[in-house]
Design a protein around this nucleic acid. Structure first.
Length: 155
DNA sequence: GCCAACGTTGGC
DNA sequence: GCCAACGTTGGC
């Protein structure tokens, strides 16, 4: 089975790459995704061993700060059933979970973040979903070539 | 904090 | 099923 590649966004004020490093086993359940397209990529596309670009959004400057991997395929997001969680979904049913998580494990921090501005300078990354006008998916696929290019830029 | 772009909701 | 209103995302 061929490995797949992804980009996952997080607001560092909420959950940064450093926060991932600080997790037990440097692993976290990627909870709180409440967009169907992103959910579908996680549920139907992601498999253990897939590679992830970790992207910091809504900060200054924004960009890819390191790499992670999928360490467990999709399973139900517990926060949808937790009334105390900000991610609580009152319409979600235990017997038919609507929202899923995957486990994400830290792999590396870039020597220098690959900023959005820098990505836009690279003609070979022109097709990246991240760079398309209006694109705002928090979980999105990248190609192997795009992944390699960005890792190389990160050093 | 602003606001463009996108997604969801709900009345009809 | 349409679409206006509303909510969210995320760069700037």
């Amino acid at each position: 089975m061929t490995m797949r590649y992804w980009l996952m966004k997080s607001e560092p004020e909420t959950f940064s790459l450093d926060d991932l490093v600080a997790c037990p086993k440097q692993t976290t359940a990627w909870d709180g995704v409440r967009n169907y397209q992103a959910r579908n990529f996680m549920r139907d596309g992601m498999r253990e061993g897939d590679k992830v670009l970790f992207y910091h959004s809504r900060t200054a400057p924004v960009g890819v700060v390191g790499c992670a991997r999928i360490s467990r395929a999709a399973y139900p997001d517990a926060t949808q059933f937790d009334p105390k969680s900000t991610y609580f979904d009152p319409t979600a049913r235990e017997d038919a979970p609507r929202w899923m998580v995957v486990d994400v494990t830290f792999e590396s921090r870039f020597a220098s973040p690959v900023l959005l501005h820098a990505l836009r300078q690279m003609p070979e990354l022109g097709d990246m979903m991240l760079l398309q006008k209006g694109s705002r998916l928090s979980v999105q696929p990248v190609t192997a070539a795009q992944y390699r290019t960005i890792c190389r830029l990160g050093g």
